[in-house]
């Protein structure tokens, strides 16, 4: 009875008409120790299929995300650090914003005059130093004689 069934299944199998379930039945049948002698020819076929199902891929695959992404973020971080550095070092940040105001316009005027005088005084100090430039000029004109000397030595050598 069972053998009959298997034979029927085999015929269907060869015509490609069996379902996956029926094929599993065939595989089970042929995985037995003993099968009917006239069907023995099918045994290696089904054994091969069953054995082959178990082969596995053992190599590991190196999965890396693209490097460009990390570079992008590094540059972003660098810019952020740079901006933070500039921000905290600016004199504006270190100065106190509230300098105070004067209520009386007269005192305010006096203060302004005082500070302007201070500025002009120190400016004059600077210009006094510039007076030395005259002496430099005199020195330079003396150096000018060297040129004359050179022309004269040239004449001599000629």
């Amino acid at each position: 009875m069972e053998l009959n069934n298997i034979e029927n299944l085999l015929e269907k199998y060869e015509n490609g008409e069996t379902t996956l379930k029926e094929e599993q039945e065939l595989k089970n049948y042929f995985s037995q120790e003993t099968v009917a002698t006239h069907l023995e020819i099918y045994k290696p076929m089904f054994t091969y299929f069953t054995v082959n199902q178990k082969e596995t891929f053992t190599k590991t695959v190196p999965l890396k995300s693209k490097k460009t992404i990390s570079y992008k973020w590094i540059s972003v971080a660098a810019v952020a650090i740079l901006l933070l550095g500039i921000f905290f070092n600016t004199p504006i940040f270190q100065q106190e914003d509230d300098l105070g105001t004067f209520d009386d316009p007269m005192t305010a005027y006096n203060e302004v005059v005082k500070s302007l005088e201070l500025i002009s005084n120190s400016l004059n100090k600077g210009t006094e130093k510039l007076g030395y430039l005259d002496q430099l000029d005199a020195g330079m004109s003396k150096v000018g004689y060297l040129d004359e000397m050179e022309t004269k030595t040239k004449i001599i050598f000629k």
């Binding site: 199998y13 060869e14 015509n15 490609g16 008409e17 020819i41 099918y42 290696p44 076929m45």
Partner: peptide, 21 residues
């Protein structure tokens, strides 16, 4: 078409097995 190719493949495996056997 798949069914036909499958059937052909199965038959030729069986035939060649019988031959070698």
């Amino acid at each position: 078409a798949v069914r036909v190719a499958l059937s052909r493949a199965r038959k030729s495996i069986r035939e060649q097995l019988t031959k070698t056997h």
